[in-house]
């Protein structure tokens, strides 16, 4: 009996506290925004079925606590991740600056097989707010410097760019998973990531 393995993509959302990780996840999965979310303690996840490249895959999106103190907890959750979403708040420069350490920490703790090409996606959230203080250009520059991480500017509140961002996340995660399979089965490593990087959105660019 030919059975097809169900594809489960594990996605981890990281970023400083109150940058909107929980909101982004809920906006994407439940199409809902609430200003009632509390600080996430421990970890939670939601699942969503998506169609990527004509395949039905299940995305398991993990939402984590933002305070770096709780990162040690992450190991259990980071394991087996297919994609890591780094979120910062476009109105809080610190949260952007900390992306570096979030990324490094993730790579250390999750220790993916191919850290150089592990798929990250960066989301600059809260673009609906007035007091923006991280420019698109700077975020893009950072992303480019890190092996061309796809960058999206989102608003979990207004639902701007959330779907497309997560679609990209799913796509890259799937590519990662396929790549993993390829490497294990001894096939030459096909860099699926190369053409998967979507053009960063220019919405809300203030340059």
């Amino acid at each position: 009996m030919a059975t097809r393995k169900k594809v489960l993509l594990k996605v981890i959302i990281l970023g400083d506290s109150s940058v909107g990780k929980t909101s982004l996840m809920n906006q994407y999965v439940n199409k809902r925004f609430s200003n009632q979310y509390k600080a996430t303690i421990g970890a939670d996840f939601l699942t969503k079925e998506v169609v990527v490249d004509d395949r039905v895959v299940t995305m398991q999106i993990w939402d984590t606590a933002g305070q770096e103190r709780f990162q040690s907890l992450g190991v259990a959750f980071y394991r087996g991740a297919d994609c890591c979403v780094l979120v910062f708040d476009t109105t809080a420069p610190n949260t952007f600056k900390n992306l570096d350490s979030w990324r490094d920490e993730f790579l250390i703790q999750a220790s993916p097989r191919n850290p150089e090409h592990f798929p990250f996606v960066v989301l600059g959230n809260k673009i609906d707010l007035e007091n923006r203080s991280v420019s698109t250009k700077r975020a893009q520059q950072w992303c480019q410097s890190k092996n061309d991480i796809p960058y999206f500017e989102t608003s979990a509140k207004e639902g701007i760019n959330v779907d497309i961002a997560f679609q990209t996340i799913a796509k890259n995660a799937l590519a990662q998973e396929t790549e993993d399979l390829d490497t294990t089965s001894g096939f030459p490593n096909i860099t699926l990531n190369a053409d998967n990087n979507p053009r960063p959105s220019n919405d809300g660019c203030q340059c």
Binding site: S133, S135, R138, Q206, C207
Partner: peptide
């Protein structure tokens, strides 16, 4: 600092 950051941002990409 915020004022500075905003000033920075509005002063355009020259800074970077």
């Amino acid at each position: 600092k915020t004022a500075h950051a905003v000033a920075k941002l509005s002063s355009g990409g020259s800074a970077s």
